[in-house]
Write a protein that binds this DNA or RNA. Structure first.
Length: 328
DNA sequence: AAATCTAGCAACCGCCATTGC
DNA sequence: CGCAATGGCGGTTGCTAGATT
């Protein structure tokens, strides 16, 4: 069992013997401070740990087990009203602890709301996946049991992954302005990152203008470098993406070397040119990542390049695509 | 059958407020 | 008033049992 290095007090799960000692002590003494409880009861625990064990588990009247439908409705209603004020919410639910309610919210109720396409933060219907925070997006993906929803959300998830790749690129570039050496064992990943035009940015540029999610996408626009022979099929192995789906990509130009220190004959680096809008990296990336089965009007890149009226779009996004109610 | 993944939950951590000296 | 001790709270971690591969 773990102990705190500085004072040797025990940490981790409580044993039945410790529980009995604490219950016996609390039943026979008035509470002074939790520190004295620990000391006088002979528990090798810090006072804080004793308090938590008592208030969350051992004190009389604690209600355990499944939450009733009424309790569930109360929690949702109070969470909407007060936010994550668990102790305040617990005051309305006799026998339930703030910790229990917090766990119940985080592990059950949030998912339940997401399944109903309700944003657990705002308690309003979700008009567009992109308006959720990242954690809720991930959770919505994980709880989805609607195949149509999964297909559509995959497109948005591609977008999230691209953003994360950009963050990784930033980090690598700052660590080493010539990151090519990292990719000798994973050239598919190298090609994916190269497609984003990352290696043309200097460490100084990145330090002064770190990429943010919005600017990352904006960075894909006209001045971004693109591959010369982008219409041809991808030469290396297709990149596996969601659930084994493979996505065709443009060929890499074998004849033009971008960097002089690494050149595998099968994976030489392409040269880069500025693109016209119609052949921009945005369009290229769109065809690269977004499933052709996806409704074209909801391409994430279209949305970014052509700002839409959010109110108008919100009202129809789910309804048009999945038959979900958009307004309650 | 073994390995891996996932959900649920108990407990800890860090921050802030309160209290007492 | 300042400081230390303590308590309260919300966020996070890590363990475990059950499910899945």
């Amino acid at each position: 069992m773990a102990t705190s290095p500085e004072n040797g007090v025990k940490k981790g799960a409580w044993s039945k013997e410790e529980d009995q000692i604490l219950i016996h002590y609390m039943g026979n003494h008035d509470l002074e401070t939790w520190k004295t409880v620990s000391e006088q009861a002979g528990l090798n625990r810090c006072g804080k740990s004793c308090r938590l064990r008592w208030t969350n588990y051992l004190r009389p009247g604690i209600k355990r087990g499944e939450f009733s439908a009424d309790e569930e409705a109360t929690i949702i209603s109070l969470q909407r009203e007060h936010g994550n004020k668990w102790s305040r919410i617990a005051a309305h639910l006799p026998g339930r602890t703030d910790n229990d309610i917090k766990n119940f919210w985080n592990t059950r109720l949030k998912k339940k709301l997401l399944r109903r396409v309700i944003n657990p933060t705002t308690h309003k219907p979700i008009p567009d996946f992109n308006l959720l925070n990242f954690a809720d997006q991930a959770q919505l993906l994980s709880v989805s049991d609607n195949p149509n929803l999964e297909v559509a959300l995959a497109n948005n998830a591609n977008e999230l992954i691209k953003n994360q790749v950009k963050v990784l690129q930033n980090m690598l570039q700052i660590i080493n302005p010539n990151p090519l050496q990292y990719f000798q064992g994973n050239l598919d990943l190298y090609e994916l990152i190269q497609l984003n035009g990352f290696f043309d940015r200097t460490a100084t540029d990145l330090a002064l203008n770190p990429l943010q999610p919005q600017s990352m996408i904006a960075g894909f626009s006209n001045e971004s470098p693109v591959l010369l022979n982008q219409q041809q099929p991808y030469t290396s192995n297709s990149l596996p993406f969601f659930d084994g789906e493979t996505i065709p990509g443009p060929v890499l130009d074998d004849n033009i070397i971008h960097s002089d220190n690494i050149c595998n004959s099968d994976y030489c680096l392409p040269s880069l040119v500025s693109a016209a809008p119609e052949s921009s990296t945005v369009k290229q990336m769109e065809s690269f990542y977004v499933s052709t089965e996806a409704p074209e009007q909801y391409s994430v890149f279209d949305a970014l390049e052509n700002p839409v009226d959010i109110d108008e779009a919100c009202g129809s996004f789910w309804k048009d695509n999945f038959g979900f109610p958009a307004d309650g």
